[in-house]
Design a binder for these strands. Structure first.
Length: 220
DNA sequence: AACAAGATTAACT
DNA sequence: GTTAATCTTGTTA
């Protein structure tokens, strides 16, 4: 639990680790929607990096043609998705990029939410070292491979329990984006999923809008 | 055993 | 707009 240091004219937000009650639930869409505006954190090599989640997609398990677990596929890769809520499902995409998901249901039901974008708020100097150039907070956190790159994550962090980990965890506060800024659209890069590719399972706030709201709220 | 496609990105032309 | 990067999985032989 960390309280940020706002100046006299700024509202102070109390951030609290999300517990298993938050992650765990029937409705993976609702969880994806609620993750927008929460804070993703890593503490790696004693360096803290954080970002406000601005884009997430729900993957609805064995009946969802876009999910790795469609049809009950249970392989070494998908095994983490079948575990309990709050674990991080991190897998290698296109042989190159590590993609971070939150597991959101009970053991045996492979629901997950893909974190597709964050707005960086802490440890930007660390993030610059990771991408090896100056950071553009609006652009560089937008994309699921970019999120893990900024946060220092790779597949070795797969199956981390985010409800207890001091390396990878998610926090909530009273901060919320304006409802009207949160859009829902079909998911990205899942054309192979037939009709399921059209489902509006993607939630996002434009990172430019997110920056304005975050500054207006006096978060950073 | 071989191959194609994938929840992507950066560097090209 | 095109392409190379390159690991896991499912399909075909």
């Amino acid at each position: 639990m960390v309280e940020n240091s706002g100046g006299p004219n700024y509202k102070s937000f109390l951030w609290k680790r999300t517990n298993v009650d938050f992650f765990s639930g029937e409705d993976v869409l609702l969880i994806a929607r609620k993750l927008i505006g929460m804070r993703l954190n890593t503490l790696i090599d004693n360096k803290l990096t954080s970002g406000i989640i601005t884009e997430a997609e729900a993957y609805a398990g064995e009946t969802d043609r876009a999910s790795h677990a469609f049809g009950g596929r249970r392989t070494r890769r998908t095994e983490t998705m079948y575990q309990q809520a709050g674990l991080a499902y991190i897998y290698l995409c296109y042989g190159i990029h590590s993609l971070l998901n939150v597991v959101t249901n009970i053991e045996g039901i492979p629901h997950a939410v893909l974190i597709r974008a964050v707005y960086p708020v802490s440890g930007l100097d660390i993030m610059e070292r990771r991408i090896n150039r100056r950071i553009n907070p609006v652009k560089d956190g937008s994309g699921p491979g970019k999120v893990t790159k900024l946060m220092g994550l790779d597949c070795s962090y797969n199956a981390t329990d985010m409800t207890v980990s001091n390396v990878l965890w998610i926090e909530d506060s009273d901060f919320r984006f304006s409802r009207r800024l949160i859009k829902s659209t079909p998911r990205i890069g899942v054309d192979y999923a037939g009709e399921d590719a059209l489902l509006p399972y993607r939630y996002l706030v434009d990172n430019q809008m997110a920056e304005a709201e975050i500054k207006k709220a006096g978060l950073y």
